[in-house]
Design a protein around this nucleic acid. Structure first.
Lengths: 327, 327
DNA sequence: CTGAAAGCGCTTACAG
DNA sequence: CTGAAAGCGCTTACAG
């Protein structure tokens, strides 16, 4: 491996000049050419550790994700990665495996790696998160959840719930089961439901019951079975597409046909919902785009620019075949 | 931020002693205690850049993946991450977005980051890959594909194909369409098919036609539609679960019921196949476990230990509801 | 525009 | 077991 000294010698200049060339400092065209030539010849690439050690900063953005095997996470990560690449930054992904402790640890661990900014895709924000974020003293952007103390990029979960609520109500549904998730997840567990409740206000005659499921498809199947045992709604509104998939499975097993015997909706816009049978009516979030936006924002934050405390990424209703028209 | 000097001063020892303590060198119990105390007190963590710069090595393992939004990739990555964590190594993920050029670039880029080992989850291995691997001079383990020049960890695709072939043949299917993928992907495109062909040898009366699809679900839907237009097999054997999902969609749209009107099988063992209706018969690969194994192997390689040039991860047939019994 | 010098925070022989 | 010294490969004031 060649070092900056080798290059300097070969080019007949001082290493400080080479460094200046590398960092876009003032260098005459003549020496610029000489250096360029030598660098090409030797395939020289600066040692990032030495750079970071001296310059005391890196161009690495860290991202902590609760899990890797989720459509939303993958998409968001790809959006982040794309944008970061364009802006010459590196992405360091840390997977917490749905473990809160590991999430906190990861914050400290990434800080140790001297990342210059952190993207936090947490499902919930605890005091320990807050403390860790404060301790490590680097810019942080919360993605998918909001918190008054941290810059946040959120999806419009309330509007999503409202959109979907209005849609199914307009289709004439008046016996609706809402199959949600834990309220500790504010975005998914609370906001979507609140949006739905808002739509409900205009239909006081509508019967609604609330149920809760885990995030996994199998948990959803079981939750749906229990629900269907207890009540016969005309529609089950599911807090995520995965849960909707579970509900469809449970319905099919019971020979309830969708949508004639039971309507189902999701939230997310996962690829798979397009090819289920029937295709699922859902609200699509723009995960990939949100990822790009997040990357952009965190870089602004790192550069000391002002960024809105809260940015909202849109959503859109995709009407497909899983909701019966009762009108 | 405290440095090793601050710790040394506070503990009343030389910084080399602190360093020795940190790296498990010979230190008396007495000084060990003093140092420990100070480190705790100041929450001291060594600067990784300085460490790497001096020690000329890191405990980072790089992983290049063709895409992030794939079940197989996510699972493998989680397995890798878990094992690496146990062994005190860090994982640096680089996403190539299904772009061969970016895959090659990533090899050089990761080498620049001084990773100590590389896990390559490529779908195909070209001469340019080989050159890059050679150029960067670090241990590399190919995951999911094999190549004589590189240590490889593969799934038993041949056996998977054989297992599935025998299974459907024993169920009495004699008009089979094999919906495969590009042969540039040796593991998925070639080996699985070869395994199937092997099973076929015992049933010379079986009619078989071969078709090709892309990896995406929508591409599979289209491929299946074309196939069904042209031929009426009793079973479509799909090279991946995703493709099987696409076929199920196409069949359902045409009101062909599964498995009575058409049987379908997949390969992979993705979570989703458990809750499709009917549940999909498939061959499960152990992605997560393979990931752990890969992490283990690359660390051995980094440590200069000998590792088999090729390790094979198993698979198992999961018989569910999508194959009709024609006997 | 250019170079010499100092220093980033560690580790590792080398003496003792 | 312990310390002083050299050095990893860069960047950044400071002179010139």
């Amino acid at each position: 491996m060649k070092t900056i000294i080798d290059i300097a010698k070969a080019a007949g200049v001082a290493k400080s000049t080479v460094s200046r060339y590398l960092n876009g400092g003032p260098v005459s065209d003549e020496t610029k050419e000489k250096i360029e030539l030598v660098i090409k010849k030797y395939h020289y690439v600066p040692n990032t550790f030495a750079q970071s050690l001296k310059a005391k900063k890196t161009s690495i953005i860290g991202a902590i994700v609760p899990r890797l095997d989720s459509f939303a996470t993958s998409q968001t990560l790809m959006g982040i990665d794309d944008e970061l690449r364009i802006r010459q930054h590196q992405l360091l992904i840390s997977n917490a495996s749905q473990n809160l402790d590991r999430e906190i640890e990861a914050i400290y661990e990434l800080a140790r790696q001297k990342i210059s900014g952190l993207l936090l895709l947490a499902a919930q924000v605890t005091d320990r998160h807050l403390k860790a974020v404060k301790d490590c003293g680097i810019p942080v952007l919360l993605v998918g959840q909001r918190h008054t103390a941290i810059h946040s990029l959120i999806h419009d979960d309330f509007r999503a719930g409202h959109l979907m609520g209005r849609h199914v109500l307009e289709k004439g549904h008046r016996r609706i089961a809402y199959l949600g998730v834990t309220e500790r997840d504010i975005a998914v567990g609370v906001r979507r439901k609140e949006g739905f409740n808002e739509a409900l206000k205009e239909y006081p005659d509508c019967q609604v019951r609330y149920y809760e499921s885990g995030f996994g498809m199998n948990e959803a199947v079981m939750a749906a079975e229990a629900l269907l045992e207890e009540w016969k709604p005309t529609l089950i509104m599911c807090a995520t597409d995965n849960i909707a998939l579970g509900v469809m499975k449970a319905a099919l097993v019971r020979r309830i046909s969708i949508p004639s015997g039971l309507s189902v909706t999701g939230f997310g816009g996962y690829d798979i919902t397009e090819i289920t049978h029937p295709a699922l009516t859902t609200v699509q979030f723009h995960y990939r785009q949100a990822g790009s936006l997040a990357a952009e924002s965190i870089i602004s934050l790192v550069n000391g620019e002002t960024v809105d405390m809260i940015t909202t990424s849109g959503c859109r209703l995709i009407e497909r075949e899983s909701v019966d028209n009762l009108q």
